[in-house]
Design a protein around this nucleic acid. Structure first.
Length: 303
DNA sequence: GGCAGTCAAGTACGC
DNA sequence: GCGTACTTGACTGCC
């Protein structure tokens, strides 16, 4: 078990998500921004290494507009060396890496344009992981997509579109349950039809489910991850008090997290803490999990 | 320097 | 049918 947080580190004073307005796009601007982002990503990984946080989600903004037609600059070639160096660092220290395209990536969209733009974005995200030389345990997680007024049909369309994907994308893609439309059970059903691994979000599951307990789904979920996929990834969060139902917490709730570790103790997986104060909660989580036998520490990861 | 409006992309839903 | 929420940080223009 590794523990980590997504995309942003609030402690180190830089961001790997720097971007700019489409209207101010220039090749120069892109180069400067990507250079800064990659340099900051290196700092974030160093910070994570020092604190034994070995799971990290890389921001989709690492290369702004990478999948937009305006971006014709060969960033893959220009920054190949930087990506390779980052990848070496990641492998050397035993990090697990994920990426998460945002809501606009919809494989099951009936609109062909939306579908093709989604493919373009997946190509970009997979390319980032490939340039780093990471194996297929590094994943790109997406949601099933929209309902489009007919859920069974929209699930059929997901399977059909998934079948069309390049193996390079398929090897990295995993599907996640969401809080309103598709449950873990829906994702498991899609796994049966496509072979795609299922990444569970425990918080989304609490808000939208088919009556099953989260712990009872861990074994069926684990079975969707093959050896080359690595152990399952799990997204974890809790409710921010007083906010809309589904709003992610500002801080980890230690007692809740301790209970989560206890309930799931028979399963092994990597935990992504989707909590707003990022590395701060991840540090707290590591403290809570320090005597959990599943936890991979920096020492045994380096060894 | 600080603030508020806005940002590539889509869908669901209420009116 | 249309506007807004969703979710989010950060860019950008304006004061």
């Amino acid at each position: 078990m590794r523990i980590g947080y997504p995309c942003i580190n609030r402690s180190i004073g830089c961001t790997a998500s720097g971007t700019f307005r489409l209207a101010s796009y220039t090749e120069e601007r892109l180069k400067e921004t990507v250079k800064r982002n990659l340099s900051c990503l290196e700092k974030i990984l160093q910070y994570n290494c020092e604190h034994a946080m070995l799971f990290f989600r890389i921001t989709s903004d690492l290369v702004p507009f990478a999948s937009h037609p305006i971006c014709t600059f060969p960033w893959q070639i220009h920054f190949a060396k930087e990506f390779r160096t980052l990848g070496e660092y990641i492998r050397q220290h035993g990090f697990r890496i994920s990426m998460h395209p945002d809501q606009f990536v919809l494989l099951n969209a009936p609109d062909e344009g939306v579908f093709h733009r989604s493919i373009a974005d997946l190509v970009y995200q997979v390319k980032v992981l490939d340039l780093m030389g990471l194996d297929t345990t590094a994943k790109v997680q997406i949601h099933v997509g929209g309902l489009y007024g007919d859920k069974p049909l929209s699930m059929d369309r997901f399977s059909e579109k998934y079948a069309l994907l390049d193996p390079v994308i398929k090897n990295r893609l995993v599907i996640e349950n969401d809080e309103r439309l598709y449950t873990i059970e829906d994702c498991l059903a899609l796994h049966e039809r496509t072979g795609i691994p299922v990444i569970a979000d425990s918080f989304h599951h609490a808000l939208h489910n088919n009556g099953e307990r989260f712990v009872d789904l861990l074994e069926p979920i684990r079975a969707t991850w093959k050896t080359h996929d690595g152990i399952p990834m799990v997204d974890y969060s809790s409710q921010e008090p007083g906010k809309r139902v589904g709003a992610h917490a500002e801080h980890i709730v230690p007692e809740e997290f301790r209970q989560f570790l206890l309930e799931t103790r028979q399963a092994d997986f990597d935990i992504m803490l989707e909590i707003k104060d990022k590395e701060k909660s991840a540090l707290a989580a590591l403290g809570i999990a320090h005597d959990d036998s599943r936890l991979i520490t920096r020492k045994n990861a380096d060894a």
